[in-house]
């Protein structure tokens, strides 16, 4: 009797159970949702040092950057440095692959024309600690280099960089950038190889505002005795980055910046600068 009752109940309840399923259909989701790309630094460069971030394939990036030569401490007479003169850089980057971009940039300091390529080699830690690594290789030609005391200037400079980035927590991006530079001083008596190590950090305060800092440790040499330090604020929109900076360096292009700066990192030597980049897709 009990067996019969259970069987009756089973026959009666089975169809009700079938109807009670959320989706009594054969369809099943084909796969997981698209993976969200790993991001560490939002921009493809910090103030001066490259990050491991690259543009999306087909994107262009136009940049205009200024480094005002007078120090902020010169006060109102120099409009806190804004009267100039100014070292400026114009840059145009293009991503021919989601992992690779080329950038052409010109600085009016020594008429430095620079072409480099950045390749994002590696990223990991989507669910834990995001890390990203890229390499940069570039060549710069100085159209109007300083004249040496003896001989002719060497117009060409070459450099290679590794940039390793990590996101600590949800808001703090940290990066280290070792650089090998050939011919840091075009007017020096002999050709040198220079090695420097840059460290950069950025704290993302909100969706659009962050603060950043850089410190590039370089070998001391005549005319470029000091390490370059930079700090500032970055504002980002869906297509722009605006960086407002204070720095003891006024050397805009990579082969210029990593070689060092003639100014010590003291408040009286800080100069104002800015970077503006605009992403474009045609």
């Amino acid at each position: 009797m009990l067996r019969r009752g259970l069987l009756v109940a089973a026959v009666l309840l089975a169809p009700l159970g079938a109807r009670g399923q959320d989706r009594p259909v054969r369809w099943q989701r084909a796969g997981d949702a698209t993976e969200i790309p790993i991001t560490v630094f939002h921009s493809s460069q910090s103030a001066n040092l490259p990050t491991a971030e690259t543009l999306l394939q087909g994107e262009w990036q136009f940049e205009i950057s200024h480094r005002f030569v007078p120090a902020v401490s010169d006060g109102v007479d120099a409009l806190w440095g804004l009267d100039g003169p100014v070292n400026m850089r114009l840059g145009l980057a293009y991503a021919f692959h989601d992992r690779a971009m080329v950038m052409l940039q010109r600085s009016n300091l020594d008429d430095n024309l620079d072409l480099n390529i950045k390749v994002r080699m590696f990223e990991a830690g989507r669910e834990s600690t995001p890390v990203m690594v890229a390499v940069v290789a570039g060549a710069a030609w100085n159209g109007d280099p300083p004249q040496p005391f003896e001989g002719s200037p060497r117009a060409w400079q070459y450099y290679a960089q590794l940039t390793a980035n990590v996101m600590l927590g949800e808001r703090f991006a940290l990066g280290v950038v070792p650089t090998l530079l050939r011919n840091p001083l075009p007017d020096a008596a002999e050709v040198e190889n220079a090695f420097s190590v840059g460290v950069m950090g950025q704290v993302y305060l909100s969706q659009h505002v962050s603060v950043l800092g850089e410190w590039n440790i370089s070998e001391e040499r005549t005319g470029l005795e000091y390490n370059a330090g930079t700090f500032g604020v970055e504002l980002e929109t869906g297509g722009h980055f605006f960086k407002l900076l204070l720095s003891n360096s006024v050397r805009p292009n990579p082969a210029q910046f990593v070689a060092g700066t003639p100014f010590p990192f003291e408040a009286g030597e800080w100069r104002f600068g800015f970077n503006v980049t605009r992403l474009l897709a045609f």
Partner: peptide, 20 residues
Amino acid sequence: YLEVDLASLDTGLGLRNRHM
């Protein structure tokens, strides 16, 4: 029943995609 994978939306700019 329809579902759209939102992470795959492409606005043409990677930065804008990430913001979105």
